[in-house]
Structures are given as structure tokens and as C-alpha cells.
């Protein structure tokens, strides 16, 4: 597979996941503001922006400004529209490597964004968030149903998994900042589509320790940090199945494996206390894995400028 194509596929995976997770986060944020009269809108909005790594604008923040920034900023790939546009732009450059269905889904999603955004202006952003989640699910379904399990698929899923680790870490971070109200923890679970799964698993009320345990360590829930790390690791292993005799020589895999075992063998009751440290470790890992993968697979794909010798 061409390095350039692999790189684009990886980023399609990342951007679609980012759009989806951001819409989950924003949906919960907006709902919290509506449902909880004691929440300070400015502080809550500030937390959301900072967890997404977005520089804070001046002045008082509200749900509207937050949504404009994180949902509709066309120029920035940290917003939903920006991420989906970037995913589509990448897809356009590698469409021969995607199934027609998958390409059409990405392209049609992109083309529908202006209309969806206009609808959000009139009826509130809920419908927009739902649209993004549904399209992401649709795209994910086509990814599973129409793409052969070759290296192209692996790069897509690798991107998606890494982004998921990163985004879940950010969501946890945002929650960890606030103490108290259990509604916040429910919101966190909901933003990961994990509320029902959590209830079925623990059959108890929502407790912060258990929520963290579930979202970080659960082996079966696909959006947990552990599951995403393991998925990413599998992709890397399949990309380079020639394991040597000693250890693991692929840097990205080593980083992922270390992070996964670090989580796996922790005492779960300590998790909540150690959360800031863990999340920092996870985000560093994601960044390092990203550059290790680029260094190994995406070598030198910028166009060269040639100069005539005179």
C-alpha cells in the first residue's frame, strides 16, 4: 500500500472518530446545561473547550459559543465540521482505496453539512449531533461491511482506535475536573454511549470509581480505553506479523503494549486517584504512537520542489 494512501486512511479513521466523539461530548454538555439549573454555563463551557485543547476566547462563554467553536468551525479539524471535511478531503485523495459505499458515505455526509448546520440554527443543535453520530455509525458499518481486512482497513481502524483512546481520555479528564454531582458521571457515561452497558454490568447506582473502571478497563465495552488500545495493538501486529525472536521491535506497538499492561495490572480502586497521571500518560502515548507510526509507515510523502541546475 502506498505510504501516502496509508496516511490518508489513518487520518480518515481519526477524523471520523473525532467528529463522533465531539458530537457526543457536546450533546451531553448542552443537555447538562438544560437539565441542571445549578450549572454555571460559563465554567462548564470553559471546561469543555479546554478539555478539547482549544484556546479559550475572551468574554463570557455559553453553550452557543461553545457549539459554534467545537461543532461548526470549518477551518479547524478539532471541530465536527472541520474533522468531517478533513476526512472527506483525505478520502477524495484515496478514493480508489475505499469501497464506493464508504467513499459515498463520507462524501454525502460532507455535502449535507451546510443543510444540517442550517437546521441546527433553527431547531437547536440536537438534531445535528444525532446526524453526526448516525453518519459515523453508518460509516463505521460500511467500514466493517465493505472493506476487506487488508492493510487499508488496518490503517483506518488504527486511526480510529488511537483517536478513541485520546478522546475518551479527554472526556474522563473533563469529568475528573469536577467533583460531586453524580449527574456529571451519568453524563460522561452517556457521552460514551456507556450508560446502559454500565448499568447492566454493575447493576448498581453510578459511582465514580466504577465509572472510571468501566471506561478505562472494561475488556468488552468497545469504547473503553483498554479495548481501543488493544484494537490498535492488534492492527499494528497484523501490519507487521513478522515478530522477531526477542521482544517487540516496532516502536508504536511497544508503546501501546506498555500503556495497555500499565492499565491492565493496576488496582482498580486506585484508578480514580491516579486518574490525572493516567490520562496524561495516555495522551502522551497517543502522540508518541502517532509519530512512531508516521515514522515507520508514512515516510516522506511531501512533494519535492525541483530546481534546475544552471
Amino acid at each position: 500500500m502506498l505510504s501516502r494512501v496509508a496516511e490518508s486512511l489513518y487520518w480518515i479513521g481519526r477524523y471520523v472518530e473525532r467528529a463522533e466523539d465531539t458530537s457526543r461530548l457536546l450533546d451531553v454538555h448542552v443537555h447538562t446545561l438544560i437539565e441542571d439549573p445549578w450549572v454555571d454555563e460559563h465554567i462548564a463551557s470553559r471546561d469543555v473547550l479546554s478539555v478539547m485543547g482549544v484556546p479559550l476566547p475572551d468574554g463570557r462563554l455559553d453553550a452557543r459559543r461553545t457549539t459554534d467553536r467545537l461543532a461548526f468551525d470549518r477551518e479547524d479539524t478539532s471541530s465536527i465540521v472541520g474533522a468531517l471535511s478533513a476526512a472527506r478531503e483525505n478520502a477524495r485523495g484515496v478514493r480508489e482505496a475505499l469501497s464506493s459505499e464508504l467513499w459515498e458515505a463520507l462524501n454525502a455526509t460532507y455535502h449535507a453539512l451546510p443543510a444540517q448546520q442550517a437546521a441546527a440554527e433553527r431547531h437547536g443543535p440536537g438534531g445535528f449531533f444525532r446526524y453526526v453520530r448516525e453518519r459515523a455509525a453508518f460509516i463505521g458499518g460500511l467500514l466493517d461491511g465493505t472493506m476487506p481486512r487488508d492493510d487499508g482497513w488496518r490503517f483506518l481502524v488504527l486511526g480510529r482506535s488511537l483517536e478513541r483512546v485520546d478522546m475518551t481520555a479527554r472526556l474522563l479528564w473533563a469529568r475528573g475536573q469536577q467533583r460531586g454531582a453524580s449527574s456529571g458521571w451519568i453524563g460522561l457515561l452517556k457521552s460514551c454511549s456507556a450508560h446502559e452497558a454500565y448499568l447492566r454490568t454493575y447493576r448498581t447506582a453510578v459511582e465514580p470509581e466504577k465509572v472510571v473502571e468501566f471506561l478505562v478497563l472494561d475488556r468488552l465495552f468497545p469504547r473503553s480505553v483498554y479495548a481501543a488500545l488493544a484494537q490498535a495493538e492488534t492492527c499494528l501486529m497484523e501490519l507487521d506479523p513478522t515478530a522477531g525472536r526477542v521482544g517487540v521491535d516496532d516502536m508504536a506497538r511497544r508503546l501501546l503494549g506498555r500503556a495497555r499492561t500499565d492499565l491492565e495490572f493496576r488496582v482498580s480502586s486506585d484508578l480514580l486517584r491516579e486518574l490525572p497521571f493516567l490520562l496524561d500518560m495516555l495522551q502522551t502515548t497517543c502522540a508518541e504512537v502517532g509519530s512512531a507510526v508516521a515514522g515507520r509507515y508514512f515516510h516522506h510523502t511531501a512533494a519535492l520542489a525541483w530546481t534546475a541546475e544552471r
Binding site: 502506498l2 505510504s3 501516502r4 478514493r95 515516510h299 511531501a302 519535492l304
Partner: peptide, 27 residues
């Protein structure tokens, strides 16, 4: 490229070395 099942390359994916053309792949 899609209907022929071959790679669609850009100039930057190709490399000429000693009179032979190569494409840069993940492998």
C-alpha cells in the same frame, strides 16, 4: 485506478533510482 484495481499514485509517491521507477509503500 479503482476499476483496474491498481494504485493511483502522485509524483511524490514515485522515485526514480538508477533508471528504475519505484513507488513508496508501507512495506
Amino acid at each position: 485506478a479503482r476499476l483496474m484495481g491498481v494504485e493511483l499514485v502522485e509524483g511524490r509517491d514515485l522515485l526514480c533510482r538508477d533508471g528504475v521507477i519505484w513507488m513508496r509503500t508501507t512495506a
